[in-house]
């Protein structure tokens, strides 16, 4: 059963077609990797799926409810069950808010609270901080007091706070030091496993996608050029583009 569905979705920025007629279905519990070069439309696609932007044509559905074209006040069901981790925690965390209010922000919206069965904010804050391995006293501090990896954990904690079904991660480690990437990736993998999340994982890093995702779509110039099980796509790429992407992965020759 599909939880997230896009039908013939197109989006233009001025004269530039960022997405051209994308069809996509994501099943409950699926872990979908989205790969492609910069400018392929990956971020535009997830913004549409998350109801943060409107398609010029086509429709987006979440859990059999239409998302595209709906006013924000009717999107509480989406906001409570689909959350995003952005690329760079330096810009995705408000520098003038304490970590505690950042993380509980999704729990304070009236629209979202209507969908949740009255989560206790304090208690949930403690739970998610523990889930992402941050000390309990982090709540009273500001984002700039944390390292890049820790800040991304804060962003992950915020995304988990409303107990979402779907987690979208938009290149969540590409702004981090190489030394902490593996930790954050492993944390995400654990959380997805433990919480039974549906994951959409956007990345340049094909090795990570192969490790983390059961299926993958390859995007180029606003279109999906290849899709399938990740093992299948990576071992027997059908298009030259996927072959080229795969060939571009740096390997150590033995």
């Amino acid at each position: 059963m599909s939880i997230l569905r896009a039908e013939a979705v197109s989006r233009c920025f001025g004269a530039f077609p960022a997405l051209r007629g994308i069809d996509l279905e994501v099943g409950l519990g699926q872990r979908l990797g989205i790969v492609g070069e910069s400018g392929a439309g990956k971020t535009t696609l997830i913004k549409l799926l998350a109801g943060l932007d409107q398609p010029d044509s086509g429709q987006v559905w979440f859990d059999q409810k239409i998302v595209s074209g709906r006013p924000e006040r009717d999107l509480g069901f989406l906001r409570s069950s689909l959350q995003i981790v952005f690329q760079d925690p330096r810009s995705s965390l408000n520098p003038r808010m304490r970590v505690g209010s950042i993380i509980t922000e999704p729990l304070r919206s009236k629209r979202v609270r209507r969908e949740l069965n009255d989560i206790d904010q304090r208690q949930r804050l403690g739970e998610v901080l523990k889930m992402v391995d941050l000390p309990a006293d982090s709540a009273d501090r500001y984002p700039h007091e944390f390292s890049g990896g820790q800040r991304q954990r804060i962003a992950i904690a915020r995304a988990l706070a409303p107990k979402p079904q779907v987690l979208i991660a938009d290149e969540p480690v590409s702004s981090l030091d190489v030394s902490v990437r593996a930790q954050v990736i492993n944390l995400l993998a654990d959380l997805v496993e433990r919480e039974g999340l549906t994951l959409l994982f956007v990345s340049h890093d094909l090795m990570v996608v192969r490790h983390l995702c059961d299926s993958v779509i390859v995007m180029r110039a606003g279109e999906i050029v290849e899709r399938g099980q990740s093992a299948e796509v990576f071992e027997h790429p059908q298009t030259d583009y996927t072959k080229a992407l795969w060939a571009a992965v740096p390997r150590i020759r033995v």
């Binding site: 509480g76 409570s80 959350q83 995003i84 810009s91 995705s92 808010m97 999704p106 919206s109 962003a155």
Partner: peptide, 26 residues
């Protein structure tokens, strides 16, 4: 234009909330 406002939208924060909590303090 910053990601934290996008994140606030994704968290269901209203326009008023975004103006008061994110825009004004910054």
């Amino acid at each position: 234009a910053s990601d934290f406002v996008l994140a606030a939208k994704a968290a269901g924060t209203s326009r008023w909330g975004i103006a008061a909590r994110h825009v004004f303090p910054n």
